[in-house]
């Protein structure tokens, strides 16, 4: 591909990604996901210390599932009312190469985090929970590693797509990971603090972006 073609396609591709992030709804969505996951992990940490009944964890998991089932519909409805009349509609091509790397990176980060509580729950229920004191000591630093990786990926996106607020959220994600590792006494509570913190960052940046987006564009735009 020539420089001319590459520049044009890159510019056009990036404008599409910027368009997708212009309303802040994707950040709000991931903020809700992370906050709910953080709450579920915190409930799990409390139940492991026998401070609350274990069934609260089941309630949190059902809540997370209910949100994951309905969130796409809710986001699409908001987009139809708020986003599309202002800046137009564009739907991604299936298997679009633009976001493939990003998706892989997100799976790499989120999959172990999502699997960890399930694995621990299975071990607890089957009575095969080994003595994890040493592992838990090390596991406490997992949020710091995740935070730095996720923060770096967010910063990379900021540079690639010219979305400046991602620099701020990238730095804050990294800092949140380190703080969560320092504040947590074990892997579950440290992960809970990290998820809640990361969720709060995304909810804040997404909320501000959506508010500014609504103010910046006239809703009467055809």
């Amino acid at each position: 591909m020539t420089h001319q073609d590459h520049d044009l396609l890159t510019k056009v591709g990036r404008s599409y990604v910027r368009h997708q992030h212009e309303d802040g709804l994707d950040e709000l969505e991931s903020g809700v996901d992370m906050a709910v996951m953080g709450i579920a992990l915190y409930i799990m940490a409390l139940s492991l210390r026998q401070q609350i009944d274990y069934w609260w964890f089941t309630v949190a998991i059902f809540l997370a599932l209910a949100i994951s089932v309905t969130r796409d519909r809710v986001k699409e409805r908001i987009r139809q009312r708020v986003t599309y009349p202002r800046i137009g509609y564009a739907s991604a091509e299936r298997g679009e190469p633009l976001s493939a790397t990003r998706k892989k990176l997100m799976w790499l980060i989120l999959l172990p985090m999502a699997a960890a509580p399930v694995v621990i729950a299975v071990l607890l229920l089957t009575g095969r929970m080994p003595d994890l004191r040493t592992a838990a000591e090390w596991g406490r630093w997992a949020p710091a590693v995740y935070g730095i990786l996720a923060g770096a990926a967010t910063w990379w996106d900021a540079e690639r797509f010219g979305i400046r607020r991602f620099r701020v959220s990238g730095v804050m994600t990294g800092v949140t990971g380190i703080v969560a590792s320092l504040a947590g006494t074990d892997v579950v509570s440290a992960s809970a603090f990290f998820c809640m913190g990361w969720g709060a960052i995304n909810l804040t940046t997404g909320g501000i972006t959506l508010w500014r987006f609504r103010s910046a564009y006239d809703s009467g735009t055809p």
């Binding site: 396609l9 056009v12 591709g13 599409y16 368009h19 599309y84 800046i87 137009g88 509609y89 564009a90 739907s91 991604a92 091509e93 299936r94 679009e96 190469p97 633009l98 735009t221 055809p222």
Partner: peptide, 11 residues
């Protein structure tokens, strides 16, 4: 090219 479909306003 990189999208499935768009509306007139986006274009």
């Amino acid at each position: 090219f990189p999208v499935k479909e768009t509306d007139f306003l986006f274009l």
